[in-house]
């Protein structure tokens, strides 16, 4: 317990940092669920694609060391844009290939779920492929390291916890993006169309809403959020891997369920909560218990409060 007290502030800072990445990824689960009542289990791979796009973009700059000044801003901006574009586009393609036909033919939810898992495994294995000696090998299973973009420096401290610039960047970027998304969904015509479709898709059609377009938009936004999460992940950890999305994706899904799946603000709350709880738990029992803690939360939420903390807002009450 004394560790918990000693490490409280540093656990809080780490928890909020990783939690904001969970929250960004959780938005994709929650948006798609809100509109289609479908858990897009391939969303974790959409995040993974974002990390690879970010690593690739950073390598294009051929940095000799951490950047600074305007170069830094440019590299960060391009990395985020590339991650968002790659993930957003992949999510749209995923919807077209893996879900649309099932949806328009009215197949069961189980079929869509199986399709999601299939797409997830397919994408993982594709990103494990490497080209060498004129042949494809499934050998890309190690971490791919990225050049360090940001010289990690200590900015200030809260209690015993030290706030580093990369952690602050991750947190601030994620929160800003979520404010933008919240405004989009709640204040614009297209956002209203998304909410209306989530609440009553047949009525939405009667009002002239093109459901397919709303679905594509939903996947695009959710994908772009995961792509930004991917870019921030790479800036924070300087690496990725073909299977990087797997555990992180399930944690983000847990965050979405915890906050109330279908609820955008719930995704933020759930993500930050999961990040904090797993870091507090790690300070008490050790870092190897992080995953156990998160998935215990998932089980407990599903047992005792399956609608999550805030309930489902996109679909039912006011978002």
């Amino acid at each position: 317990m004394s560790n918990f007290v000693d490490l409280f502030w540093s656990s809080t800072i780490d928890g909020l940092t990783i939690g904001s990445i969970y929250a960004l990824v959780a938005l994709g689960y929650t948006l798609v669920y809100g509109v289609l009542r479908l858990i897009n289990f391939a969303h974790s791979e959409i995040f993974m694609i974002g990390t690879f796009a970010s690593v690739g973009t950073i390598s294009l700059f051929g940095l000799s060391g951490p950047a600074s000044g305007l170069t830094l801003v440019l590299v960060l901006f391009c990395t985020a844009a590339a991650g968002m574009a790659a993930s957003g586009a992949s999510a749209v393609v995923l919807e077209r290939v893996a879900y649309r036909r099932l949806r328009t033919r009215g197949s069961s939810r189980l079929a869509a779920l199986i399709s999601a898992i299939g797409a997830s495994l397919f994408l993982q294995e594709v990103f494990a492929l490497r080209w060498s000696n004129g042949e494809l090998h499934a050998s890309g299973r190690d971490y791919v390291n990225s050049e360090r973009v940001l010289e990690k420096t200590e900015l200030f401290s809260i209690g015993d916890g030290i706030v580093r610039n990369d952690k602050l960047l991750v947190f601030v970027a994620a929160i800003l993006m979520m404010i933008v998304l919240d405004r989009f969904v709640n204040r614009t015509r297209l956002g209203r169309g998304i909410r209306a479709t989530a609440q009553d898709s047949e009525s939405a059609v009667l009002m002239g809403v093109n459901i397919n377009r709303v679905v594509v938009l939903t996947f695009l936004i959710g994908g772009a959020m995961a792509g930004l999460a991917g870019a921030l992940y790479v800036v924070y950890f300087d690496q990725t891997r073909y299977i990087i999305g797997f555990v992180l994706g399930i944690k983000a899904f847990t965050a979405a369920v915890l906050g109330g799946i279908g609820n955008l603000r719930g995704a933020l709350l759930g993500g930050l909560t999961i990040g904090l709880v797993e870091n507090y738990g790690a300070s008490i029992w050790g870092a190897e218990w992080k995953d156990v803690i998160t998935f215990s939360i998932l089980v407990l939420v599903l047992l005792f409060r399956p609608n999550g903390i805030l309930g489902e807002a996109l679909g039912r009450s006011k978002a």
Binding site: R189, R192, G193, R195, A196, Q199, D200, E202, S203, A204, L206, M207, G208, V209, A313, L314, G315, R316, S317, K318, A319
Partner: peptide, 18 residues
């Protein structure tokens, strides 16, 4: 077929969506 989570005004604006 009211959108339960949209306000009355937002529901009306859905009518003029197009």
């Amino acid at each position: 077929g009211i959108f339960p989570g949209l306000t009355v005004l937002e529901n009306l604006h859905m009518g003029s969506y197009i």
